[in-house]
Each structure stands twice: as structure tokens, then as C-alpha cells.
Amino acid sequence: MSEPATPLDPRTAQRLAWTRIALGDAAARLERASTDAGFRSYWRTHGAASSRIVMDSPPDKEDVRPWLRARDLLEAGGVRVPRVLARDVDAGFLLLEDLGGPTMAQVVDAANADAHIDGAITQLLILQSIALPEDTVVFGEALLQRDAGLFEDWYLRHHLGIELDCGDAERLQLTQRRLMDNALAQARVPTHRDYMPRNLMPVADGPAVLDFQDMVIGPIAYDPVSLLRDAFLSWPEARVDAWLRRYHARALAAGLPVPDIASFLRDADWLGVQRHLKILGIFARLHHRDGKSRYLADAPRFIGYLDAVVPRYRELDPLRDLLERTIKPAIARLPA
């Protein structure tokens, strides 16, 4: 006599039942495809029909409507995004086309990077050219202040155990103010805010763009530097510089409001510093608050980025002093 099946938890049972109805396949099965840093999860279908992806956004934790709104805007503007085949917004379930397994981050290497980056720039230029609704959130002072707080609250205080003295607090505040002023002075375009190889799928008519629900109107250099100074991949600085120049030339040709090349490279550097500080805070929060510790393994990459860029600019000397005198010694004291 066979063992009785283990009862499914309510959300798992609800997801499977919805999938079988959406597919018209009472025997369809689901297996985990991927998850993200939030509460969404992704499941690949197996059954009589071609595989599909079920996106599960528990409505009490992750409203699916912003994702759908951004997806529809991007698709209408010509950006390659996942196609939606069925939806239940109230329950938080979407049935999507299956774009395949590997993301760009999993297939890009030194030999094929130029082609992948060029394709990513093509999609980015389309995204940056879209006319967004007037009520789209602007990546302004409020969001920048929130990002700045993530670094101090979660990376310095929670992770490194640092309480800044008056001098160090002043150095950090001065640096953050200069970074924010630079971001606020840039021309504004549609901004993905996490445009990186992990969120790009290498399909024939793409790459397809993922994880776009936090799209805002923001500084034009933000997404290029997110792509090229990625949270999970590092490239030689000379190669990054060449790609930034390639983006700049193509953006000019597309009529996008980029400044002269010297100003753009500086803007990209400074936004890279702002973004790296923010992500250090996010990774520390994922570890300490959410129990998702794998992201912290990439924290040294951000310190490396800062070491490469910050010394180029006298205006960022307060951050260099803070790194050398306070942050790096605290990192060295962390348990191995």
C-alpha cells in the first residue's frame, strides 16, 4: 500500500489548482524556476502543453499590479518583456511565456560580452525613449534619501556594528549630499533601476527585460551604470569605459538627452558610487532582516568598485577617508 501524499500548504495548493485551470491540464505539475529578493516566486509548468512560467505574488506581500502596469507600458513602447497568457490579479498569479532557463548573467563571458552588452543597450535605448504617464514616480530627493539611509542603517550599523562619530557622520552626509546633487542635476528618462544581466533573458528578439516593476523617471546614467558595473559581475575598467562610450554614442544618435562624454562618464561614476552604497545596505538588510544571506558574498565587489572610482574625484575624498579609516577596519574584524 502506497504512502499517503504529503498535504500541500494552502498557497502551494492554490497555485497548483490555478495553474491546472489556466492550462486546461488537470495533471500539470510545477517545479521551482527561480525566486527573487522580494516575495515573488517563479514556477515552471510540466504537462501536456509547452512549458510556461507561473509568477506567484502573494497579494498580502507583493501586489502584482505595479508589475503588470510597467510590463504593459514597456511592451507598448517596443521593449521585449514576458508575454502574459493568463492572470488572476486578486490571487496574485500570472501565467507567462517561458523564456528559457539561463539569464544573461549565466551565459555572458569575456568572449561574447560585446554582443550581449550591445543587445542590452539596444533594449535600454528603447526603454529610455518611452513616454511614461504623468503620475510615474520621479527618482528624486525622497528616493535618494531613502537609498542613502539603507547604507548607514543596514550596512554600517547592523552589519559592521559601526556607530559613526561626529566626524565620520559629517563625511558620509557630505558625500551623500554630493552624490544626490549629481543625480538630481542629470536629465531624466524612464529608469528601470535594476537593469543588469540577471534581469535580462537572452532570447532571439531581445534580450527580454525582467523585474521592471520599480520603474521611475530618473537620471539618464543610472541604468547604463547598473548594467556595466553590475552587482554580480565585474569587468575590467577599460572594457566598462569602452561600453559606456558605446552607450553614449548610441544614445546621442537616438536623440536621448545625454551630456558631453566627459560629463556623462563622471555622472556614471558618481551614480555607480551611489548605487553601490545603496546595494550594500540592501544586501545587509536581506541578510539580517530576511535571512537571505547569499547576497552578502558579493559585498567585496562593491568595495572594489569604490576603490576603483572614488580616488578619481577630489569631491569624494570624504568617502575615501571614511572607507580607509573606519569601514575597512570594521570589515577586517568580521568573522571569517
Rank of each mutant, 00 (worst) to 15 (best):
R146V: 12
L256W: 03
Q213P: 12
L252E: 11
Y195T: 03
V216L: 14
V225M: 15
L143S: 13
G218Q: 13
L172H: 00
E152Q: 11
D205Y: 08
L174T: 12
A242N: 12
D165S: 05
A204N: 13
V240C: 05
L233K: 14
S226G: 02
V258H: 05
L150N: 05
I162E: 02
Y247F: 15
P236T: 09
L256N: 10
P257F: 02
Y195R: 09
Q173E: 10
N182D: 10
Y155P: 00
R239T: 14
F232R: 15
L160C: 02
G167D: 06
L184K: 13
D165E: 11
Y155G: 00
R177C: 06
D214K: 12
F151D: 01
C166G: 15
I217C: 14
P257M: 03
I217E: 09
D147H: 03
Y222V: 12
Y222W: 14
R250E: 13
E237W: 12
V225P: 01
S234Y: 04
D181L: 10
L179M: 06
V216P: 10
P236D: 15
D211L: 13
G167S: 11
Q176H: 09
V258N: 04
H248N: 06
P224V: 13
E152V: 10
V189D: 06
A251C: 04
V189C: 03
H192I: 12
A231R: 14
L156G: 00
G161S: 09
A208Q: 08
D194V: 09
V203Q: 10
W235H: 04
A204S: 12
R188Y: 03
I162H: 04
G255S: 11
D211T: 13
Q213V: 08
M180C: 13
